[in-house]
């Protein structure tokens, strides 16, 4: 479980394919979920995570040995991994689930990630993961739990809602500034560490054409949940999905008395 002895970092970046934030969400007619036949892209927080991993390499140079992107999702999620590779990840793992399968829940995702991390450490002393960087939440389900659960399962340090990350590879230490209510908090934690990203951490780069071409030749591994011995069956049952009530326009009143009458009518009382 412990990271490699050599002073080289292996970074794992879990990413999720989500409905793009610019798309207007529509509930499907059966009210079982949303219309997913729309433009998808990488969860923006995960994009920040990939960018941060690439920036760590730009700062730490050869001290970063590898950046591996991983996703759990339907066949089309491989496009999201291609984007991560084009941004600068070295290799990718796609844990593929059928197109029709329900979206896995945070605990199942965390267990899958744990299985991948264990698999990596078995692969060789110098390929164990030292740092996991992932989005603080996915913008589709807004659950925001995967990072914390993974840290719990592994017993690793966690630094959530990061707005600045510095890693001292020699000391095996991360300094992270976290966004908290009313300000920011700086913490120091030992590697291995789980870092979840907040919006202000960085601004992700464009994927350039040469890197998009190179990304096509980077190692790309496909696995199934069964290969990793994990069960992705959801524990929760979605009963119904509905749209929020439509906003109703206000009315104009002529006098204060009329306003008071309307307020009373609406059941609003003086406290």
């Amino acid at each position: 479980m412990r990271p490699s002895k050599a002073c080289l970092l292996n970074i794992l970046v879990p990413v999720k394919r989500a409905v793009d934030y610019a798309v207007k969400i529509r509930v499907n007619p059966q009210q079982t979920g949303i219309d997913t036949n729309v433009k998808h892209s990488m969860n923006p927080f995960d994009e920040i995570a990939v960018e941060e991993a690439v920036r760590l390499r730009e700062r730490l140079k050869d001290q970063v040995k590898s950046i591996k992107a991983v996703t759990i999702g339907p066949p089309k999620s491989s496009e999201t991994l291609r984007t991560a590779l084009a941004m600068g990840a070295d290799s990718a793992i796609h844990v593929e689930i059928p197109e029709s399968a329900p979206s896995p829940e945070p605990l199942a995702v965390a267990k899958t990630l744990r299985a991948i991390i264990e698999r990596q450490s078995k692969a060789g002393a110098d390929s164990g993961i030292d740092v996991v960087i992932l989005g603080k939440q996915a913008i589709d389900d807004d659950l925001g739990m995967t990072g914390q659960m993974l840290a719990g399962l592994l017993g690793w340090s966690q630094a959530t809602f990061a707005s600045k990350v510095e890693i001292d590879v020699e000391k095996k230490e991360a300094r992270v500034i976290r966004e908290i209510d009313g300000g920011s908090e700086e913490i120091k934690c030992r590697l291995p560490v789980i870092i979840t990203t907040d919006l202000r951490l960085n601004e992700p780069r464009y994927a350039t054409l040469p890197s998009i071409m190179k990304a096509k030749k980077k190692p790309f591994e496909k696995l199934t949940a069964a290969d990793l011995g994990v069960d992705l069956t959801p524990q929760l049952e979605t009963i119904k999905v509905t749209e929020p009530p439509k906003r109703v326009g206000g009315g104009k009143v002529e006098t204060v008395d009329e306003l008071v009458a309307k307020l009373k009518e609406a059941g609003i009382k003086a406290v």
Partner: peptide
């Protein structure tokens, strides 16, 4: 990109509506 005498230096391809 693979042309012998490339017409372009490089470029970026949008990855999302944003």
């Amino acid at each position: 990109l693979e042309a012998e005498k490339p017409l372009i230096n490089t470029g970026v391809l949008s990855q999302s509506p944003a």
